[in-house]
Design a protein around this nucleic acid. Structure first.
Lengths: 399, 399
DNA sequence: TTTATTTAATCCGGGATCGGAAATAAAGCG
DNA sequence: CGCTTTATTTCCGATCCCGGATTAAATAAA
């Protein structure tokens, strides 16, 4: 049971105001007051402190009310884009994508490194990540000192709270204190987060879940991940570790346990097709899925069967997640969506069949095929959220 | 984003102090201060107000510190058992169990009505529940006016927040506003809750999860239920509805979807054995499971096979829950545990096989065969928790 | 041009909260 | 019986939120 004091109270309300401004864009104090249910007095005090800290700006045009209103015009407030800068990254097996974002979450620069880092030693991966961060920062015309924090989104079981990677398909080792490693290398506070959580927050901030405070996202990539948004916050299980859907068990087959990853993981689908040199090459370069897509359109029977089987497995899994969380919306993302109709149709069919009748219609299925930039932007949002929450300079009242 | 004000702050700290006293039994102010990390000043003020409201009592003996300590002796504080009384109930298909509990959660009286209410009209069930509540209250030497609130624990999909029963095996109808119905009948505030949530809180308050703040419980009864404790609170999905594990899908069989309930539900197991008159009679009376236990010990092959299959299905499900929540402990309760070794062994084996290697050792499996009273006591705890949270009389400072 | 009206934002005072320092209470010790 | 020790309470200052009065900044009307 956490203990409350005036400081916490102010922190909560400050975050509430700042987040309201971020979500709405330019907004006046009166309207903030209405939305947060804080008194105008309090909003005035908090915004004064935010202005004082340089986190927000005033803008005198743009009062959206009906033209020709009588009284004093509202002063619009907006997040100061230059109050801070963060780096967000998506680290995947065959590529790394970096973005530099400002305090509002706008992307200032993007860098994609199409390198297979899969199973390299930690030091090599850390080198590449460090290099990517530095280059992306330079691309944005900045220096690393200008960056307030970095967030890396990785696949696997990530313990955000402690900064440890419990296990990840891109590392041979387990239980790595990667946040500490990168913080030391970059001499900038670096946090790590599950890539699924990053894209979940991306959708909450910028994408298809902006208006929702509860939501579930399922990411279908090399790893199958889950993100749960609960009351506007990422739901991190006990201990703050992320969910790894691939480990879910679908049933007992003839040769023992059948895990979801064996039915719907990238490698499970790609594994159906080997031998062929061109195909192997595409897989090695991380273009497996697009290649598969082409083959499916050319009626490759084995791959179509694999896609159908994968869709079925995922559809059932989604139904199970819906049974547990009953979210108003489920967003599906990830490279496997590129498998196209055979996959999606069997997914939809299996879901419709598997979702309990009592929950039919509760959850809406949404597919999203954002690019990797969006994942990286989500990682940036994770970093920004922690900045938003942090107490900043003036803890006392502005002098 | 909830807004904070001094009132909320006090409410949080009051609950924190009161809950600390409840958990620890008799405890001094200094120790409360240490545990809650509130200053002694604040603890003093809050306890004064709690004393003023009659929620706690002082006791001058019982300072546990080493005998012959020098200074002023600590005054021990404890929850006033007579500050309130609640009724908790477990409503199941073949029986209803009621308890009256005092403010501390001690059971004052118990009443079991071994009646099959399964599928009766709402009015009939409401009549029986009303009767049970009234009789149990009288048994405790009280009148209904002495009771502050009632909590009914029911199987199925229960929407605690609104008091609606979305669907329940004991009702033919769906979406019933049962809380309102019973509040009107008893003219006492009545809340409803999933039976699984009730027993989850029972274990947190009195049972096998007292020291944990995160935990998962799986109830294996007629319905398969789930309770998740997250940071000392029941985790209720979006909209506050409960989880119904029976609807989980284990895979696709020859004839379509295979749900957990068809493998491990009470009726699935009992369904294996029919015809026999004595057995049917036992099932009708809700003694099916104990009867099955006897038959299993007598080497009834079909039932043993059913138990093994059920254990397997449940073991896999538990592994999947662990994959999602990674709780430090999983508690299993419910009548199906009575199936004995064949069931439990196959459950344990399947779990060990199905739990992802990376989470091996994270969650501990605990079996619990508490009686129905304990479930009802859990429902009482749900009611008490809401009383603990409520603002009570003196909102202002004690005069 | 000047004055009224309207709406936004701020200022001021009241009430509540927490926490630190000092005072008080209640024991044992010598 | 005074001294020491520990627990609790009292007093006081700082912070926070809020309601009401006040000031600010615009339009509409005279």
């Amino acid at each position: 049971m956490k203990t409350a004091d005036p400081e916490l109270m102010r922190a909560i309300n400050r975050l509430s105001v700042l987040d309201t401004i971020r979500r709405h864009g330019a907004i006046s104090r009166v309207e903030i007051s209405e939305r947060t249910e804080l008194s105008t007095t309090t909003v005035s005090a908090i915004t004064a402190s935010l202005l004082d800290d340089g986190l927000i700006l005033t803008r005198h045009e743009g009062d959206i009310r009906n033209e020709a209103v009588r009284g004093r015009p509202r002063v619009m407030l907006e997040v100061n884009p230059d109050a801070a800068r963060v780096v967000g990254a998506k680290i995947a097996a065959s590529r790394m994508v970096f973005v530099v974002a400002n305090f509002r979450g706008d992307v200032l620069s993007t860098l994609t490194l199409p390198i297979r880092i899969d199973r390299q030693p930690i030091a090599v991966i850390a080198d590449l990540v460090e290099d990517g961060v530095r280059r992306c920062v330079v691309d944005a015309g900045l220096s690393l000192e200008d960056v307030d924090s970095v967030c890396l989104g990785l696949p696997g079981v990530i313990e955000h709270r402690t900064g440890h990677i419990r296990s990840s398909p891109i590392f041979r080792e387990t239980n790595i204190d990667f946040a500490a490693e990168m913080t030391a290398r970059l001499s900038t506070p670096t946090i790590i987060e599950s890539d699924a959580h990053a894209i979940t927050l991306a959708h909450h901030w910028f994408g298809k879940a902006r208006e929702l405070e509860d939501m579930v996202l399922i990411s279908l990539e090399q790893t199958l991940g889950l993100g749960v948004l609960h009351r506007n916050r990422l739901f991190r299980g006990a201990g703050g570790l992320s969910h790894n859907l691939g480990d879910l068990v679908l049933g007992m087959g003839a040769q023992g346990i059948v895990r979801l990853s064996s039915q719907a993981g990238e490698s499970a689908i790609l594994g159906e097709k080997q031998a062929d040199g061109r195909f192997a090459e595409a897989v090695r370069l991380g273009r497996g899925m697009t290649h598969v897509q082409a083959l499916i359109q050319a009626d490759d029977d084995r791959l179509i069967a694999a896609a159908v089987r994968a869709g079925e497995a995922v559809g059932i899994t989604i139904a199970n997640i819906v049974t547990l969380f009953a979210p108003p919306r489920v967003i599906l993302v990830g490279s496997s969506l590129a498998l196209g109709e055979p996959f999606l149709n069997s997914l939809r069919d299996a879901y419709a069949l598997a979702v309990p009748p009592s929950l039919k219609g509760v959850s809406e299925l949404v597919f999203d095929d954002s690019t990797d930039d969006f994942w990286a932007q989500g990682a940036a949002a994770v970093a920004l959220y922690e900045l938003y929450e942090s107490p900043w300079s003036t803890t006392g009242p502005a002098l």
